[in-house]
Design a protein around this nucleic acid. Structure first.
Lengths: 220, 220
DNA sequence: GTATAAAGTTAGATTAATCTAACAAAATTT
DNA sequence: AAATTTTGTTAGATTAATCTAACTTTATAC
């Protein structure tokens, strides 16, 4: 639990990329961090010595339990910070990522405990991503992609996948926020775009690219 | 204005040590940063290339105007952060230095502007040190050391010199805070200790070591 | 005013994190 | 299954920031 800023960034990336089986390629990591493959390989050997990742030549990378915990705690700090910046400091949800990216490396348990307390122990960040608990564990909710829902369904916007600043600004101009109730009015088979209504907007068109990045909760 | 974390720490130390004439020795800097002299020398050459310090072999070090500005802006971020941590996050004035030491390096103008706004543009930090303005300029008030005041005087506690956690805890247990009105009741020539009264405390003894670290405002 | 001490510099080594070039293994294509 | 592409590794160089050892300059003491 005393890793360099650089090591923390590798852990975080491993945690974030880890798909289904939790396996990650050197190439993926390299691309995601914008660091050349040989550098990634040598860092993996280093993290393996610290028992944070399992590393074997030519095999996929995997975080150890220790690695998962430490990565989870960094992401916890990142997401708590994003929530703090939006809720307490009134920054836009499209502006908080880069700041949180820096503050997540602050070493000070009290500081983040205080944040957590002031926010009344939030479970998700401003983009709907779950905040790992104090042991670094994440509970994943089973949301659906809006693009996978059926015509006629009424759903609630719960999270944004790959919440880039550009996409969030796109949502802002359409007055879309988390918690919003959305009715699916039409589905266009040709390009898989959909027409939805919500709030005062009666017929908003969303491309498949956009709707595949919106996660929703179906009516209970 | 794009310096490494390390460079920022040198600039800050130079700014803080700079006494009367603004000159600083390599030895002082070395001691203050706990970095050996040869390392300091080579960093000074580097900062000189960046036009942040004037450097000539065997001569005292001096910040350039550019160096002063950039150092002032880092200290501005440090002190704004301390104020934010105390005022908005309810941390004790003895606990904020180490956190601010990390947050001062965050690159995000908006973040600090927001802090400044939320705090209603404070002029001093929780220890009474002035917060440099947006151009990195500091206005020094002419405070007096409590140890230099006369018996009978009534003064207001305005700032703490060298606000270490230990000293601040010492003040906490004696219920001393900034803004406190203090009457000097006695002066002991032998050890230069003084007896003061304030609030409900009628006769508190302060050693010369303590009273020399308290800065006060005299009655106007 | 010489001797000693303190302050400062130079030279060269070390560590962390990165890179490029060249090679090796695994996966994919034909 | 051989050829090609993609993926991964090794070897060696580079940069920033640090160190120690040895030397030089400036300041202080007697």
């Amino acid at each position: 639990m005393n890793n360099s800023l650089t090591e923390e960034n590798y852990l975080k990336a491993l945690f974030n990329i880890a798909n289904k089986n939790g396996e990650v390629n050197v190439a993926e990591l390299s691309k995601s961090l914008d660091i050349k493959m040989p550098t990634v390989t040598s860092m993996m050997k280093k993290l393996a010595k610290k028992k944070l990742v399992y590393y074997e030549s030519y095999k996929p990378l995997r975080l150890t339990e220790k690695g998962k915990r430490e990565a989870g705690l960094i992401i916890r700090k990142h997401r708590l910070t994003e929530m703090f910046l939006v809720d307490k400091m009134k920054l836009g949800w499209e502006d908080v990522h880069d700041i949180a990216e820096q503050i997540e490396h602050i070493k000070s348990p009290v500081f983040f405990e205080k944040m957590d307390e002031m926010l009344d122990y939030p479970k998700v960040d401003p983009h709907g991503s779950p905040i790992p608990d104090i042991d670094g564990k994440v509970v994943l909710k089973d949301y659906y992609k809006l693009s996978d829902c059926q015509t006629g369904e009424v759903v609630t916007l719960a999270a944004v996948i790959n919440a880039s600043s550009e996409f969030l600004k796109f949502l802002n101009t359409r007055e879309m926020r988390l918690g919003l109730k959305i009715r699916i009015k039409e589905f266009e088979p040709f390009d898989k775009s959909i027409v939805v209504s919500y709030g005062k907007r009666k017929a908003e068109v969303l491309s498949s690219v956009a709707s595949a990045r919106l996660l929703v909760e179906r009516e209970s």
